[in-house]
Simulated assay, not measured.
Amino acid sequence: MDQGEVVEHVAIRAGSAGRPIVVGISGFCGSGMSTLARRIVEALPGAVRMRGDDFLDPARSHLRSADWDGVERQRLVSSVLEPFRGQQPGEFRRYGWAVGALGAPEPVPRAEILVVDLIGLFHPEALPSLDVTVWCDVELDVAVSRGMARDRELGRRHEALWTDVWTPNERDFAQRFMPREHAETLYASSY
């Protein structure tokens, strides 16, 4: 699907759900997840975005793991996704990268659609809490090249993390959990 088709698919699902829905966007690092999430929110009134980076553990996300252990899926599910889907009040805390700690409690947003973009999202801990699943369908080597270029443009020197940690984590996660197969929608990201 292209971006317009993804937006239309989300709008149809939201219109027929009868309750707020969660749209999970995942893919390899650098595949265009955040860009797609922002565009869906811009295109659909009543949609809000939850940045996946707010649910990464900064130490564990920089370590090798076969299941993206640094992705705090359980915290995301219990503090945001389930209260949102159940239209219940709740609070969550974003990870503040600038201060190196969880931030102050914030209320769970109220909206018709919550869009979450996150690596390692299509995992058994989180899949039951996602109403729509979109995979940014980009080959790993292409996604890594894009991500590394983006980081260089932003002045971030993460080459060793990309080659020694993030790319192997992506390969292991894809082999173990087959996230692409859990997506109901494949988005052909051109970034």
Rank of each mutant, 00 (worst) to 15 (best):
A43H: 03
L81Y: 00
L44I: 13
F92A: 00
L76Q: 07
G46L: 12
P89V: 01
Q74Y: 00
G90V: 00
R60I: 02
P58N: 14
G86Q: 14
R73E: 04
E72M: 11
A98V: 13
L44Y: 10
L76G: 06
V41M: 07
V99A: 11
D53Y: 12
S78E: 14
R73S: 07
L76W: 08
E82K: 05
G30A: 09
A47Q: 06
W97G: 09
P83F: 03
D53R: 08
E82M: 09
E91M: 02
W97C: 04
G32Q: 07
D54G: 08
W97K: 02
L63A: 14
R73P: 01
S78C: 04
I40N: 03
R39A: 14
D67T: 10
A43P: 02
P58H: 15
V99Y: 08
R93M: 12
E42I: 02
I40W: 05
D67H: 10
P58G: 10
M33P: 00
D69L: 05
Q87F: 13
A47W: 00
P58C: 06
E91D: 05
R39T: 13
S31A: 15
V71M: 06
R38C: 11
V41F: 06
R94Y: 04
Q87D: 15
A66M: 05
M50P: 00
S65C: 10
V80T: 02
R85S: 15
V41A: 15
Q74H: 05
T35N: 10
